[in-house]
């Protein structure tokens, strides 16, 4: 399995954020997207997830166990927001996402209990999600990545609200995912503690010369 991005360009509003970004990642590899604020890290990740249309270029998953039409279908996306409902209990949230996602070929998600234990929060599944602190909510959002199998993890500032111990825990989760033949792409300022991860530097691009108008 190989994730191949060729000549990606993307816009936010009328501004061209980046141009001609290309890279390839093989199974078991991680890519850390780095760069200053506003250099287009989040935009790149949203383009990969299929949430923003690319102005040019393509991103595809080659030789996957389960061929997908759009790359986004094979991805877990952990954005700035946790995508969990405050009014529902943690268990209801995770059970819903597990059922709604379903597993792709080539792997299987773990149970809701096991996922909560894996992020160090077993035993509070019965509580409403809104009762949890910001860090706990973030960790439960990470548990969402575990309950259903997706080969590609797209992580946008995954450890922003976490303490050092939780960061180490998350690095363990990602390493484990890579060991299972997954791919991880993370945009972050903090060192994630992943060994042998490749880096992509976003320089930012002002698209004035492009002259669309």
């Amino acid at each position: 399995m190989r994730l191949l991005a060729e000549g990606l360009s993307a816009k936010r509003g009328e501004d061209l954020i980046f141009r001609d970004v290309s890279f390839g990642i093989d199974a078991g590899e991680a890519l850390i997207v780095k760069g200053a604020n506003g250099s287009g890290k989040s935009t790149l990740l949203r383009v990969l997830a299929g949430l923003l249309p690319a102005v040019s270029g393509t991103a595809r998953l080659l030789a996957a166990a389960h061929p997908v039409e759009r790359l986004g279908e094979a991805c877990h996306y952990l954005g700035h927001r946790n995508a969990m409902k405050r009014e529902l209990t943690v268990e209801e949230n995770l059970v819903f996402w597990k059922a709604f996602y379903g597993d792709l070929h080539g792997g299987a998600g773990i149970g809701v209990d096991a996922a909560a234990a894996a992020v160090g929060l077993g035993g509070i599944l019965h509580l409403p999600f809104g009762y949890l602190s910001a860090g706990q909510q973030r960790r439960m959002a990470m548990a969402r990545l575990l309950v259903a199998w997706r080969p590609v993890w797209i992580l946008d500032e995954p450890t922003a609200a976490l303490d050092v111990a939780a960061e180490a825990m998350f690095a363990g989760l990602v390493t484990n995912h890579l060991a299972q033949g997954g791919i991880a792409i993370a945009a972050t300022h903090q060192p994630l503690g992943l060994e042998g991860a490749r880096e992509l530097w976003m320089t930012g691009f002002a698209g004035a010369e492009q002259g669309v108008w």
Partner: peptide, 13 residues
């Protein structure tokens, strides 16, 4: 949209 669930609903098969 506010809690980010919409992104995940959009991505699915």
């Amino acid at each position: 949209r506010e809690d980010g669930s919409l992104d995940l609903l959009l991505m699915q098969e």
